[in-house]
Amino acid sequence: MTSSLEEPVSSKPLASARQTLLRNSLGQMVVRRILLGFGLLIAASMLIFGGVEALPGDFASTYLGQDATPQAIANIREELDLDRPMTERYLSWLGGIAQGDFGTSWSNRNSVGDQIWKRLGNSLLLAGVAALIAIPLALALGMVAVLYRNRIPDKVISILSLAAISLPEFFIGYLLIQFFTVQLGVASFPATVYDGMGLGERLATIALPVMTLVIVVLAHMMRMTRSAIMNVMSSPYVETAELKGLSALRIIAEHAAPNAIAPVVTVIALNLAALVVGVVVVEVVFVYPGIGQYMVDAVTMRDMPVVQGCGLIFAALYIVLNMVADIVSILANPRLRHPR
């Protein structure tokens, strides 16, 4: 029999937050987060579609440019279905996308979907390889910085990462080209890939863009990893472990790591989301046939179906990665895993 007088001391908002947490089982919270992600996705699609539609300027005249006669505009409006109500067009657009049909490009009448699927693979290869290199490197450097905190290695890492987050992505790209392609002649530029290229060749071609992305994302990820681990390392339970006479390695492995997983995974997911966006600039720098390049070209030509399709893909990747981050931190919370 426990005495209820012994309720842990806590302030009102905390107590009620805990009750809310306890009332929900783990599964419910995860399901709720997935539903929220789904809702955000729908809302983002409305934002991308509706935002574009609600803005001033008539597409048909934009589309035709200077030689827009009234007759031509009317023809185009009809051809592009611009005369149907917006909600109707939104629903058919969304319905199409659900079946993989993103519509046809205004500029060259090609299927947007085909282009997106083909180029998405290229972009994901770029981002994936960059992530595979950046994540372990960032975690390792973050831990080195914590182990040597406020000493030389930490300071060097911190200065370099401050510099790296201050450089625009395209500048890093051109610096690498200048050095590796122009001066050393060891890397290829532009990074052209084509169908039927072998994996090895493909990887060699994308070396520089990958390196650019790694530098861009590494600095952020490392800084965030460092502060996440520092946060855990400065907690009272790590002090307890230290006062038990445990070795540094055991303290990190058994006491810090289980609690650092959630924040670190969050850091990784957030940076992967940033990485996906970083792909846009890097593809333009290296003239790489990915979805980012496709979108930027379409924006310059005001090719709306392409812009909307690509925008939705980017938003979806971003929303899903953020959702994964949240779900991992829900799963890693012992209070939720082992309710009272």
């Binding site: 009272p236 339970y237 002090e239 307890t240 230290e242 006479g245 445990l246 289980p258």
Partner: peptide, 25 residues
């Protein structure tokens, strides 16, 4: 030597046990 003392020969009880226990174990 200090590590061999801590936890084995001298132990510590903190003011806030709620914070001093590792929530994960």
């Amino acid at each position: 030597g200090i590590r061999a003392v801590r936890g084995a020969r001298v132990a510590y009880v903190a003011q806030s046990a709620a914070a001093a226990f590792n929530p994960a174990h």
